[in-house]
């Protein structure tokens, strides 16, 4: 799920960035520092969308660096248990398949793939229904339900299932 939230960060800035571009410098450093990172609490920071407030800088003794408390708005992405997500399949093997939704790595084990879908090996391994009408392979887009999440400092892992109504392939690259 995406959220638009306000976060705060203490930014340390080298004196060479002071001057009339100070604000721009702070903002671009902020984007560089936080976009694409993950935090266990908020999930993946997709983009900084605005600055709420930049507090008074505090000069660090001895170094000349100044610390600014910056309040900023950003879009974060964090999957939740029970959430329905759309994801792209990255790898298929006999254990199940792996899929990605942006920074999130999702594993759907064969325990959580409908029983009527069977694994087929070959140069394009896939899970297929016995009548061949539905096929999950690399690059397929699937709709899945998250049943477990773990957010690390750099990565988000999820366990997903497609063993439920209205879950499964939403487009099949082979038929496009």
């Amino acid at each position: 799920m995406f959220f638009h939230i306000v976060l705060e960060r203490n930014m340390q800035l080298h004196p060479r960035y002071f001057g009339r571009n100070l604000r721009d410098n702070l903002v671009s450093k902020l984007m560089k520092d936080v976009e694409g990172t993950c935090s266990g609490r908020h999930g993946f920071v997709v983009a900084v969308t605005g600055i709420e407030n930049i507090g008074k800088g505090i000069i660090r003794d001895g170094t000349g660096f100044v610390t600014f408390p910056v309040k900023y708005q950003c879009v974060v992405f964090r999957p939740f248990k029970g959430e329905i997500l759309e994801a792209v399949v990255t790898m298929v093997n006999k254990m199940g398949f792996f899929a990605e939704a942006g920074p999130v790595q999702i594993f759907v084990s064969n325990h959580l793939i409908p029983d009527d879908m069977e694994f087929q090996t070959g140069d394009m391994p896939n899970y297929t229904t016995s009548d061949g009408s539905v096929k999950i392979q690399k690059d397929s887009e699937v709709r899945l339900k998250i049943i477990g999440t773990r957010v690390d400092a750099t990565e988000i892992f999820c366990i997903g299932t497609i063993k439920d109504d209205f879950l499964g392939v939403i487009n099949d690259p082979a038929t496009v």
Binding site: F107, S109, L112, R150, F157, C158, I159
Partner: peptide
Amino acid sequence: HPGSFGEMCIRCGQK
């Protein structure tokens, strides 16, 4: 708990 991915069970999602 037949196995884990990211230290969560691959079947029930439990940590």
